[in-house]
Nucleic acid binder design. Structure first.
Lengths: 208, 208
DNA sequence: CGTTTGTTTGACCGTTCGGTCAAATCGGAT
DNA sequence: ATCCGATTTGACCGAACGGTCAAACAAACG
């Protein structure tokens, strides 16, 4: 689409720190609640310097969403129709959970955007995301029809994986207050694996 | 605590519409992102009139959180140690889901507050909520020890119910974009029941 | 060295923010 | 009808907002 002119090291570095600072602030306060001064402070730059690298607050936000959406669907895309059904679903859930663990700011940015009504990314939700979900739901349905996993609603299955994995990043403060400050993700990984195995396994070999 | 002087019908009505308007705006934009003008507009009152009934923007927000927290823990409190284990957990999950269905704005308000770092309600999370969760986790653990439900992590079990039920309110825009504009809660209720029954039932009588 | 280009910033602008206030209006009891 | 407290609002305030700009500064190159 847009070909970038060659970028100096200073440009690359400053654009990076601005995006990181913007991610810090937007992911906590949302678009409206964030201010350029907060972002400039988080980035360690002056406000006019911010606007030397990005034309506006909106542009910073848009750049963050763009780089987020570029990889957000990858875990679901990787769900392989030719793999072992239970293994594939569990691997998907664990990939998504790892994404929440490793990129909690991105997860929260996504959450604030959705909560605000998804003004910027609604087209992506109703387009590519919807198509991808429908495609993978068909895969799940075919597995269910073949008796390889237990029959349940494939769409809600996918949504439930989103809900569970997002929650540990987005509601981090609440989870830590209740579970303590230890690593909640380790326990979450184990629980989620257990949960979906027991849901999907067609011939449950319990009590191992 | 604070005894209210007798309230006229006008006062009762205007305080109500202000809180409703504030809920509309805060639940979408968060505290920082919301403006008094937006709230006044949503309430159908002028901005100075708003501040005749509430001393400040913070006071409106605090009143909303207070009335939210007053009932937020009720579904979990109602989990009965003397009831049938699977029935009790499923009933809790369904009560929580009903709360998301019937009070989506309150659910989103809670979400924005948590995402912002829970500056107003952190004490409640680390205090009453934590205590309640620990208490109910002990109940779940005793059921597991007695073999009445399958053994899994009780804390993560509770957190997962929060995650799933909140999601249908908080990520409503995304859910609707993917599942269509129909009633997602009906399908969610069925799926969640299925999910937790298969996790918890100690002697699964599948294929009914 | 000088010059050119890229980078940084203090000062500033118009607008919107949360909040105030005096004056106007309303409503219910007498 | 009159009164008095309750209610409503237009006009306004200082602060913070997103954004601009000219001038100062740094880096690269001959």
């Amino acid at each position: 689409m847009n070909e970038h002119p060659p970028m100096t090291r200073i440009q690359a570095r400053n654009r990076a720190v601005i995006l990181s600072g913007g991610l810090d602030v937007f992911s906590i306060a949302g678009f409206r609640g964030a201010t350029l001064d907060q972002i400039a402070d988080a980035a360690g730059l002056s406000k006019p310097n911010l606007l030397y690298y990005f034309p506006s607050k909106d542009a910073i936000y848009a750049a963050l969403l763009e780089q987020l959406l570029a990889t957000w669907l990858d875990p679901l895309r990787a769900l392989d129709a030719d793999g072992d059904p239970v293994t594939e679903v569990l691997a998907y859930a664990r990939r998504k959970l790892a994404l929440s663990r490793d990129f909690p700011r991105e997860s929260r940015l996504f959450a604030t955007e959705i909560l605000a009504g998804a003004p910027q990314i609604h087209a992506m939700l109703a387009g590519p995301l919807r198509d991808l979900v429908n495609e993978k739901a068909l895969v799940l349905q075919s597995w269910m029809d073949a008796g390889r996993i237990r029959a349940t609603d494939p769409h809600h299955l996918i949504v439930s994986i989103w809900a569970l994995t997002q929650h540990y990043a987005d509601f981090d403060v609440q989870v830590r207050a209740v579970l303590g400050d230890g690593d909640a993700f380790a326990g979450a990984d184990h629980f989620i694996t257990d949960l979906y195995r027991s849901l999907l396994d067609p011939a449950p070999a319990r009590r191992l």
